[in-house]
Write a protein that binds this DNA or RNA. Structure first.
Lengths: 339, 339
DNA sequence: CTTCGATAAGACAGCGCTATCTTAAGAGGA
DNA sequence: TCCTCTTAAGATAGCGCTGTCTTATCGAAG
């Protein structure tokens, strides 16, 4: 059969499927890829032959021949963050059943690392890339541009033309939190943030803008540290803020982790939440609905972002007309006991 | 240059590197792969040419020509579980710098789904597979066997010959928890578990074995539900247990999530932890060191498991002699306020 | 009845790399 | 000096697919 059996993999090939189905190899190829110019009768014949042989296409050969893989690269700033896990899971759930492979790249909140990942992953000739946000190096942008890989941006929105993005307004979310705390009668409002990526900064901007509009912005009421966010850090930053500004009566944490830590610390110090100080988190992690007191938070559509971004990519790859290049999935303020 | 430029990808190829370096293509190939029979002078010449051109090898062509990719498949039962994220991250950190791609498969605690994933991923001709535990379908085992892909098993240990595994004794961990609670003077001890995978069952077995040895095992003191574990479920199961057995004075939760939920529920019900009931969790998630009261837990070496499993795989792929096929990374009981 | 265009099926070549076989060039011994 | 043996470099032939061009077939139009 094969000229040099030592090189072969042992698995059935398209040629064998074609032979069994009694058609040319290329016809079998087209039949299995749903190319519309193949007679339905032949398609089912080929399908059956493939089934009988247990044929699974060789992705390497496919990629080499067509210069385009069936892989979608997803670049996220962290895996440790529960947030991105849910998004990734959603992306998987859309792409895998449609035959796409998902390659995950974690760039650890580093633009340089992201650039390196892009460079390396482009060698896989991915059919699309899902990116987090818009903040990346010039070189990254050039690479993506030069390789003409379809991109979809997640988590942030933009007005720019020809950019596909799925997310929500981080700034508006910050503003909503500010107005909520103001409505609760709080006036000494602080923003506590860690892991200062673009989105964390946007939330803070929105929060402070709303405070300024209400005439209660005190720029001193802010702690922003670049280190990674964690429960322990939340307690620490809360303690620090309280020592510096004992009169603070409301805090917006850039994510729930920090808020959880602050709740524990408040409990230890015997500080009444929300009476003396109200807390609001961000992301609405599962724990927030159960912690004592239950945490008010912004519920972010992170699963929906993944699903929509993946669907948008699939639509583009299928050549479909995509009416909405910008998908605003919105967020929701979930008011609970902590405010 | 190329015969049919329309088919080309536009990126530099090995042939161009070889031309620039003034060697045959195959020599360039060998030089870049560190095949030892190439003159060091030529190696650096080729390396430089590759650098000048910005050459990145085409993985699809590589895989097709060698019938083996540089991808390692990792199959985990869940992504939602913090536990596996840390393991995955560790695996990534070892494999990616060495040029391996990591393909993640999530089988959602389903043996059938795992089998399907194995079938599909084998088409990628992975150079290795990292598996979670030992519980899988016959067909899965046969597929792995037939394709002769090196496997490393994570999270559990076995005495079987010729099986590479990295983990710790789940049973022993359960027993350690039991003895700890007994030493605290507790006698009405319960096991509360969800997501009943093999490891959760093993922990329970170890726990109950130790209780039986101490003569205090009450088989009624147990709640095991198959549904997914969550903070909310922990509170619920704790409430249920307390109604059925108001005299329970110590609970071992199969993971920290459940224990956190139970702590919140206890706080709401005004039940003193640990005085009336002591709690012990499993995994020692970051939050456990901060929750009020701080949670006693078993610290599992999940990051180390990933690192060691990946290193073991790398060593096998390099053809190195691996002295220890079984790596027991052990666990640690971290005693805190909740017991 | 011929011509033409549309459509379906096939032939062919090549994607970019590596396994394998072959050749060339030294090293060493008789 | 000749011959063998080792070792490095090269030539060749695919790996398993798909893009592209060609050919066959058929109905409609002239």
């Amino acid at each position: 059969m094969r000229k040099d059996p030592s090189r072969a993999t042992g698995r059935p090939t398209l040629a064998e499927v074609a032979r069994l189905a009694g058609v040319a190899q290329i016809t079998a190829s087209r039949a299995l890829r749903d190319v519309p110019t193949v007679d339905p009768g032949l398609v089912s014949k080929v399908r059956e032959a493939a089934n009988v042989l247990g044929y699974v296409p060789n992705p390497a050969a496919r990629t080499l021949a067509s210069a385009r893989s069936q892989s979608v690269v997803v670049l996220v700033p962290a895996l440790s963050n529960q947030l991105y896990i849910e998004t990734l899971e959603a992306i998987h759930s859309v792409l895998r059943p449609r035959g796409y492979e998902v390659l995950i790249g974690n760039f650890h909140y580093s633009r340089e690392e992201e650039e390196e990942l892009i460079r390396n992953y482009l060698a896989f000739q991915p059919c699309g890339i899902l990116l987090t946000g818009f903040d990346r190096t010039e070189a990254s942008l050039r690479l993506l541009e030069a390789n003409k890989v379809p991109c979809v941006h997640m988590m942030e929105l933009t007005q720019a033309e020809d950019v596909f993005c799925v997310g929500f307004s981080q700034e508006d979310a910050g503003a909503v939190v500010a107005r909520h705390l103001l409505a609760r009668g709080k006036r000494r409002l602080a923003y506590v943030a860690a892991q200062l990526d673009a989105r964390v900064l946007q939330r803070g901007e929105g929060f402070k803008r709303a405070l300024a509009e209400a005439g209660v912005l005190d720029p001193a009421l802010e702690i922003m540290v670049p280190e990674a966010s964690s429960v322990g850090l939340g307690g620490e930053l809360f303690g620090r803020l309280l020592r510096q500004h004992p009169d603070v009566d409301g805090i917006f944490f850039c994510n729930d982790d920090l808020a959880h830590g602050a709740i524990f610390e408040a409990q230890r110090q015997g500080i009444a939440v929300p009476d003396r100080i109200a807390f609001v988190g961000f992301n609405d992690l599962p724990m927030s609905a159960h912690i004592v007191p239950r945490l008010t938070s912004i519920r972010t559509p992170r699963e929906a972002v993944g699903k929509h971004a993946a669907r948008l990519m699939v639509a583009r790859l299928a050549g479909a007309e995509v009416p909405d290049r910008t998908v605003d999935l919105e967020f929701e303020l979930v008011v609970r006991e902590s405010s």
